[in-house]
Amino acid sequence: MGFDVTRFEGEVDEELVCPICSGVLEDPLQAPTCEHAFCRACIIEWISRQPTCPIDRQTITSAQLRPVPRILRNLLSRLCIVCDNASYGCSAMIKLDSLATHLAECEHNPKRPVPCEQGCGLIIPMDELKDHNCVREMRSVIHTQQQKMADFQKELAECRFTITELKREVHLVKEFMRAMRVSNPAMRSLADEMERDEVIQWSNSLTRARVTRWGGMISTPDDLLQAMIKRSLRDSGCPLNIVDDLMENCHERSWPPGLNSLETRQNNRRQYENYVCKRIPGKQAVVVLACENPHINEDMMAEPGLVMIFAHGVE
């Protein structure tokens, strides 16, 4: 809808007035052949009801509407209009093409967003400032936050429930596959792959560890120490089918040739730095998985991996 003609300085030429709304053309478009011009909003609205020119009834469609000639646009942009907020005290007289810019920063705009200076600091429209009550506003903010939190909690509970369900299903599927692998070779390779994936997922969940003192390695951990490490492995989500094998490989008696005596360890100490080690959470111990260490010499590695327990020196 066009601009009220009474807002302009002096008489506005009839050419610049929209025949539909009788305001000064706003974002004008013209009909293809007769070249009658209308506000974009006005002519689109009219065509949606009747596909004709509102002046001479020639058939037109909205796709045929064209921008008006530059000369007409220039005439429009040079018109001087009073600010929308004149009734709120703005005395600015603006060129039509700068009206939008002025409105964005007009300080008489009753809806201009301003921060409350009485304490709450909320951004509110200027005309609401006088009826503004910090406590009431904050209460309503708190109320909506609580609402949101309650929603989130509900969602969280639902997610948890779903996860538990999924876990249970996955467990069942695994059991099923274990039962099947014995008889079915395809199933066996699938199950093996799944197990490998499980190991990788688990190891990705662990943090990379750095051993600063390889000399602190305990090559003959006692049963109590082994039991503690095993529990930590389990708690960290280690796939149950490799826990025992891994724990088996925490003692020098099961270590590969390159590690199984003090002497060989001494000879190969330079290669320790090449191990990709993962921290066993909360313990001075690391797990070195075969799948993550393909670059390590065979005589320094064992399947499915090694567990190394230290007296100190793990970061």
């Binding site: 003609v5 709304c21 009788s22 305001g23």
Partner: peptide, 14 residues
């Protein structure tokens, strides 16, 4: 009512 096309038009036509 000021921002209504109908009223604006009728005022002018009147």
């Amino acid at each position: 009512m000021a921002n209504n096309i109908a009223a604006q038009r009728i005022q002018r036509e009147f």
